[in-house]
């Protein structure tokens, strides 16, 4: 298992994993969580996907997509500012080159059987580690995200605690809250340990991997 970062300029070359990701998102966010999202057939794509996001994907050696998350700069529109603004009360949403926003985090729990400590699948830790690596590669120091109480617990237990930006509030079927995830060596080391790897999980998507 490893992770890749997909940018808009590489979509054509990685059409298979891209398609699998949109399918996974439909299964999770529409079929399971029943969010009000744009769908066609077996895929889910929303307006934030039109903002040149970077997708981080956890991929198996067979090139199956096991999990994904979407990263957007906070200098443009973000879900926190433009969709979940009411979570913040009167406070302004973060807008900073050193802050990214993550959204659509999900792991294909039906597929990843390699469960490790805390009952979490390895894909989750690989994704968390890849998020920190991607943040560093982009020169950012923090990720802001809208998440729920359950995910907040998972992050705390994993050793990457969320710094709350809002108090939890009911949102649809869940209890939502906004918070920061900061870059730190300890958090990254904790993710590597739990993912069962010694170093970076994010591999290049260019031709070097094809040749390997």
């Amino acid at each position: 298992m490893h992770a890749i970062a997909l940018h808009t300029s590489e979509f054509g070359r990685h059409l298979n994993v891209l398609t699998s990701m949109y399918r996974l998102r439909r299964r999770i966010f529409k079929d399971r969580l029943d969010w009000s999202v744009s769908i066609s057939g077996d895929m889910e794509i929303d307006v934030y996907d039109a903002l040149s996001p970077t997708y981080i994907l956890a991929v198996s050696e067979q090139q199956e997509v096991l999990g994904c998350v979407r990263l957007l700069p906070t200098t443009g529109p973000t879900m926190l500012a433009d969709t979940f603004g009411n979570l913040l009360g009167n406070r302004a949403a973060p807008r900073d080159e050193r802050i990214l926003e993550s959204s659509r985090f999900c792991v294909d729990t039906g597929r990843t059987f390699e469960a490790s400590r805390h009952g979490l699948s390895r894909a989750t830790f690989v994704l968390f580690a890849a998020m920190i690596e991607a943040m560093r590669a982009k020169g950012a120091q923090s990720i802001v995200t809208v998440t729920d109480a359950r995910m907040e617990r998972i992050l705390r237990r994993a050793g990457w605690p969320l710094e709350r930006l809002s108090e939890p509030q009911p949102l649809g079927q869940t209890i939502a809250l906004a918070g920061f995830l900061h870059d730190s060596d300890e958090a990254l080391a904790a993710m590597y340990r739990q993912a069962g790897v010694n170093g970076p999980v994010l591999v290049g998507t260019g031709s070097e991997r094809r040749a390997a």
Binding site: T19, S38, S40, I45, V47, D49, D82, A93
Partner: peptide
């Protein structure tokens, strides 16, 4: 074709339908 359709849809929504308004 499915992704071309969906991409077209979300880009039109983002840029022509003012999905993001300055709060």
């Amino acid at each position: 074709v499915q992704q071309v359709g969906l991409y077209f849809h979300v880009h039109v929504s983002a840029k022509l339908e003012a999905a993001f308004a300055a709060p």
